[in-house]
Nucleic acid binder design. Structure first.
Lengths: 190, 190
DNA sequence: TTCTTGTTCCTAGCGACGCTAGATTTTGGA
DNA sequence: TCCAAAATCTAGCGTCGCTAGGAACAAGAA
């Protein structure tokens, strides 16, 4: 009995190890450096072990992405803090979102580009995902007026994501990034 | 003299053929089906001829993307037409943008996701790219107020791109797509 | 018309990828 | 101590982007 418990514990540890090594490798060298061979080598197991934990490479990327969503949600929560002014709260959370994307480009990639198959706008979506979206909802509520809060949160999210992803892809010059963000917020918030 | 001209003409034809076959293959079967082998087979040449035209596969994708930018710019231009009302013009152009992304997902992917190395926010950027951005500028000018027109055009672009790409990735439910778009426009345009 | 020279193009193959079948080692219990 | 089962590895499949080196071809000279 206890011995099986130990085995399960070890398996869970190894699974966490795989995910964190994948994440670290992606964050330091980019996703193109994350191959099943390299990953297996760093985890100090052979390739097939990866497939006893995850259905395929995509599933590993997905696991990393879920970590990313949790981190992002936490960052946004912290940024909102106990800010009184709705405008300030909005600005802080938006800035946190953008900063997260800039500081963790590979993670952000996994969350929004790499991956297509994570359940999202459904109840089965990871909790961290709902938590992150809730932050946007909170911060948007005071400025929604007659508009639907959920919809406005989604629109804000779209604006932030668009800004971030066009900038990261070189589509927008990095130069006026701050001004664009400020303009987006000022327009969205009236 | 004339014979070399013929050769150059044939080379140019073949290059166009490669790009259009790549585009067709991508649009019908997705980019993961566009391999250099399959492409070469459909063009009825061997793989290495691709590399005598393009530096690598990325360059072929880039060529397809440039076609995409031209098409998108044309669609937006047509949508604006001679619309009188600034609001209507904005709505039409935005709808055209979104429709293009929905009708040509693979093309849109090449333009905004697949590719990182196209020169963008610089003078060397393909003309079609400037043309497309100009459309946004035109349509945004009347609603800019005291704000910088270029910046507002970029913000609008970000919003549209965010909406499109989150929806396409399953991050936003397709259901209220229209309402989100309307909300984005109403917020941005005051 | 035949030969030579330079270009064009293809065959074959390299290293790396994600993934898996089957052999081998390790493990815990009889 | 031995055995069955579980865990793990070795080896390899098919595919990828890309390229070296040779074969086939065309154009000008003899």
């Amino acid at each position: 009995m206890s011995i099986q418990a130990r085995r399960e514990r070890e398996r869970a540890d190894r699974e966490r190890l795989i995910v964190s090594v994948a994440r670290e490798l992606a964050e330091t060298e980019g996703w193109e450096a994350v191959t099943t061979r390299r990953l297996a080598e760093r985890v100090e197991y052979s390739q097939p072990v990866l497939y006893s934990h995850f259905k395929g490479k995509d599933a590993i990327v997905a696991a990393v992405a879920v970590e990313g969503f949790a981190d992002l949600a936490a960052k946004m929560r912290a940024a909102r803090g106990s800010t009184r002014s709705p405008q300030k709260a909005l600005a802080n959370v938006a800035a946190a979102y953008v900063a997260f994307a800039e500081q963790h480009p590979a993670l952000y990639d996994a969350m929004f580009n790499q991956l297509v198959s994570l359940p999202f706008a459904t109840p089965e979506a990871p909790a961290a995902l709902h938590a992150g979206f809730d932050e946007l909802r909170q911060v948007v509520r005071p400025i929604a007026g007659d508009d639907n809060v959920d919809l406005l949160a989604e629109v804000l999210w779209s604006g932030l994501h668009g800004l971030v992803s066009l900038t990261r892809g070189g589509r927008l010059p990095r130069q006026d990034h701050e001004r664009r963000l400020a303009l987006l917020l000022s327009r969205v918030s009236r």
